[in-house]
Design a protein around this nucleic acid. Structure first.
Lengths: 184, 184
DNA sequence: TTGACAATAGACCGATCTGTCTGTACTGTC
DNA sequence: GACAGTACAGACAGATCGGTCTATTGTCAA
């Protein structure tokens, strides 16, 4: 591999993540990923061993990117305002051109085997979200931070799932409710 | 067919709905449905023409059953209390043994083709939900029934999606928020 | 120059998928 | 008893799936 170019492993993760998110894990075959990545089959199995591991690895990279993305988005916002500001991020995401719902939800929906490696990645990300919400509601100084944080998780899930089905209006509805919840 | 038994069409819908909901549309092949229904392949294609139509028909029957189920559940509740009572139904659903998230969400997630016949069924059901929520919030006499109804949709979606991933606690969290919203 | 290594290209395997087809058995009606 | 209609049973076709394999190319270091 020429060091000036993107390595084949990253090209595979890029292509896999894009296709799996857009069309679903089961709807996209290995060959599609290889064509999109411009990679050889042997490279895929050399780096990932099997399709399931490629799925897990691509999801892992996506969740890692999402965390960094969210933290950067909130960096300039005072901690007490971050819970609310987060819903601005959700609205922007839901309104973005390629938005198609929550990749974690899709994985859990499609990969019914609880032992699938991607499930562990999803669990990690959900825990991370739970911790962030607790952190943000604590900083917001609300009366019952734990219950409020849990309610915000519901609003977040509802915003993303609803926007996938009905359009991004659901995300702004969720933000409206988050505003009420954090104010009262 | 002997009239005293269940017709093959209904057996196919039963088996299809059960398997598709449990494992996903793409994960379950025609042969699995036939075996579960005890039906012949020719019967399936005689009644439904193709798999996609079987998917749509089984979803349609499920949504019809769900409407009847919900209306029966709320029949004894005064209209002003129905919005809140509905979330009791959601909690019971999320806590039921075979709960595995929202079949509409799964369909939209798995069937990315917007022209898929099951998509129209999903749209119908979503509209029905929207109308019921408006009806219930109007009857509840809240200040802003339209915005409240939309917020309740978000809570409903969040309850179901969240419960699929994290367990039924999410549904009780949503009910808690609905109580706050409808009281204030 | 040679050899190790990483990557490409693509044939190949067995399994599974949707859908079509032929043939057979049962039931109710004329 | 002949017939139409419905359902079962399962072979078969063509495509695609995940995964293995061999052969080849290009790069870098010794």
């Amino acid at each position: 591999m020429k060091t000036s170019e993107i390595g084949v492993r990253d090209r595979l993760l890029d292509a896999a993540d894009r296709l799996f998110y857009r069309e679903g894990v089961r709807a996209v075959g290995i060959d599609r990923v290889l064509a999109e990545a411009g990679a050889a089959k042997a490279s895929l199995y050399q780096h990932f061993g099997c399709k399931d591991q490629l799925v897990a690895s691509s999801l892992e990279r996506r969740t890692g990117d999402a965390r960094a993305n969210i933290e950067a988005y909130l960096a300039d916002t005072p901690p007490s305002q971050r819970a609310l500001k987060f819903f601005d991020w959700v609205v922007e995401w839901a309104e973005s051109k390629d938005f198609r719902g929550c990749p974690l939800q899709h994985m859990v929906s499609e990969l019914t085997d609880a032992a699938h490696p991607a499930r562990a990645v999803a669990r990690d990300q959900r825990e991370w979200f739970g911790e962030r919400f607790r952190e943000w509601t604590m900083a917001a100084g609300v009366k019952d931070p734990t219950a409020t944080a849990r309610a915000l998780v519901v609003l977040f899930d509802g915003a993303v799932a609803g926007s996938e089905v009905d359009g991004p209006q659901r995300a702004t509805d969720a933000r409206w409710m988050a505003t009420k919840l954090l104010a009262g």
